[in-house]
Write a protein that binds this DNA or RNA. Sequence first.
DNA 1: ACATGAAAATGATCAGATCACTTGGTCATT
DNA 2: AATGACCAAGTGATCTGATCATTTTCATGT
Lengths: 235, 235
Amino acid sequence: MSTTGGVVRRSLLDDLATSMLALIAERKLAPGDQFEAVRSLAERFKVAVPTVREALRRLEATGAVELRHGSGVYVGPNVGRLVLANPLALAPSPDRLVELLQARALIEPPVAALAAQTRAEAALEQMAKDLDAAADLIASGDHAQLAEVNMDFHRSLAQASGNATLAEVVESVTVVNAREQLEILHIHGDRQADLDEHRAIYDAVRSGDADLAELLTREHLDGVLAVINERLQHP
Amino acid sequence: MSTTGGVVRRSLLDDLATSMLALIAERKLAPGDQFEAVRSLAERFKVAVPTVREALRRLEATGAVELRHGSGVYVGPNVGRLVLANPLALAPSPDRLVELLQARALIEPPVAALAAQTRAEAALEQMAKDLDAAADLIASGDHAQLAEVNMDFHRSLAQASGNATLAEVVESVTVVNAREQLEILHIHGDRQADLDEHRAIYDAVRSGDADLAELLTREHLDGVLAVINERLQHP
DNA sequence: ACATGAAAATGATCAGATCACTTGGTCATT
DNA sequence: AATGACCAAGTGATCTGATCATTTTCATGT
């Protein structure tokens, strides 16, 4: 935001972007709904098409809208979100990877404890589905897909806390190159043990045992961290 | 990322954006450095100017680059960041505000404990500066500025943990409409008490007392939360 | 040295055109 | 009637080329 002596100079683009967001909010459009054609927007706001497109690209970058070729402009999944993973992040260095896991090991256990107190039902069911899916994928040997589902479990767990902001934080810190993280894990980690630990966490949350949920989550992530560290030291 | 049967269709824009990021990385450019002119980029990548601009807008949205009218394209402050606050977030609802504080009350205490163990020197000095600045601003009565500096203290505290990812998380969850949060606080909160609590946290971190730092941070944020809740119930 | 002001560099915006993809309907085939 | 091939309209993607606005640079004159 460029300022000069406290006075904010809003460019045409700033106005456009916020106006379009306001338009989405005004029409009460939800993620997935179709928005409005580029040409139509250009006419509505009395600006040229390239200008509209630049504004849309800005919104698109944070998942506020989606541009689908040949189809239209749609409301994106991240409208109204406060915290998000940098969609442009490049593959993290090994140091950054360890740091990321440390951050998760610090944040997720208390979130699990809160989840055990709140127990948002929809999220609990999602956790159960994630566990089932993981079991299937272990059997079928699809490790890439398994990695995704395991991450989904952690996200569902955060959802169960009932705090959308916390869920966003966990989602952000969890979505960052899941591939890289779990590439390592699935070479050297014990997939079945992972699943068992997830199941234990689920049971603790389901039964409302906050202390146990926190403890199990901490042990689980510390274990993951240990595997990663070991792997990085013996490449 | 649009996929069809597992095959990723990268649009020209996707390629452009990542190529430009790679170019920045390759040249080892740091935030604030000048990048390259739009027309020059268009020529380099053999695409039209509007296309380059759309890609730049995408990067700009997450703070990877900055476009300064008449001056040039510069590397932004968020290059290489993993987690960030949604720059398009609108003012959070009261519910969302409470949720945000709850998230902070959950995350920041263990971060403070870690900071007391790590004690990154540069961040400790920054904390001291923030405290001094806050004292001055209380004296001068500049509440708006005081709100900012108080947030800075929390960010510096997270920096002291030595974990950049955690610092990013705290920064993200802290930057979201500091204005709204502290508008409430500074009408009904006790500014001097706030400062004293910050000082106590600083002392605990400085002396390496992790448990105390965690406890004080928790009490501090719970206090803030109580003020916010009270304020929202009696408008 | 300093201030002034023109010139160059650069981003912002516009206009109109063409290409590429998606979608829904038509229509022949089965 | 169900199915599939095909076509046409709607819409995003990209290009070309120009003009305006802001910043920076630097020669010029005092």
